[in-house]
Design a protein around this nucleic acid. Sequence first.
DNA 1: TGCCAGGCCGGGT
DNA 2: ACCCGGCATGGC
Length: 214
Amino acid sequence: MTVLLDIYYKLSHAFGPQHWWPGDTPFEIAVGAILTQNTNWGNVEKAIGNLKNRDVLSAKVIYEMPVHELAELIRPSGYFNIKAQRLKSFMNFLMREYHGSMKKMKSGETHLLREQLLSVNGIGPETADSILLYALEKPVFVIDAYTKRVLSRHCILDDGRSYDEFQALFHAILKKDEKLFNEYHALFVKLGKTFCRKSKSLCDTCPLSTFKKQ
DNA sequence: TGCCAGGCCGGGT
DNA sequence: ACCCGGCATGGC
C-alpha cells in the first residue's frame, strides 16, 4: 500500500506546498472547521470576516453573545441557525474545560481531546480531526469527501467504508507526522477542488491519472 | 438555471 | 448498524 505515499509525492510535486489551514489563530481555525461543514470555503471567509469586523472572534465573546445575533453574523456560511448553535456548543465546551483557551487545550492528550470534541453536539469526526490537526497540531489524519472520492475512484478503498476505516488506512501506512498529515490533507482538497468535483469523472490532466487503472 | 460545497444530527427501520 | 431528510448561502 505504498500507493498512498506515491499519491502524496505526485500531489506534492504537482501542487507544491499548501501552507494550510487558512486562518490566523488556532481559535479561528476551530471556528472555520465548524463553519465549513458541507460548505464552500469562500462563504466561510465571509462569515469569519463578519466576526472579525465586529471584533467578536473570541471564545468569551461568542460564549456570551445571543445565538440569534451570532447566526446573523455567520449567515453567509449557510446553515447559519444550526451552525450558530454548534459554535455555541463548542464555546461552552472550551470555556468549561479549558477556560476558553486553545493554548490550554493544546496541552491535552490527543485521544482524550478527540473524545471530548466528538462529545460536543455538532462536531463529528472530520471537524474534530481538523481541529486536532490544524489548530492543535496533533498528528491525526483528516478524512473528507474529497479523500474518500479520490481513494474510491482509484479503487484503493470503497466509498462506502466508514470514516474510521479510511483514517486507519492512513495511520497504518504513514508515519505519524503532523507536518505530513497537514500537507497531505491539504493536497487532497486542492486536488478535489481542481479535478475531482462530484459531477466530474477522472480526466487525463489529473496528477493521479496514472493510477486510474488499479 | 440547477447543482454543488473541506458534515452532522435525529428519527426511523 | 445503516439510511435518509433537513439544514441554507453564494458561485459557477
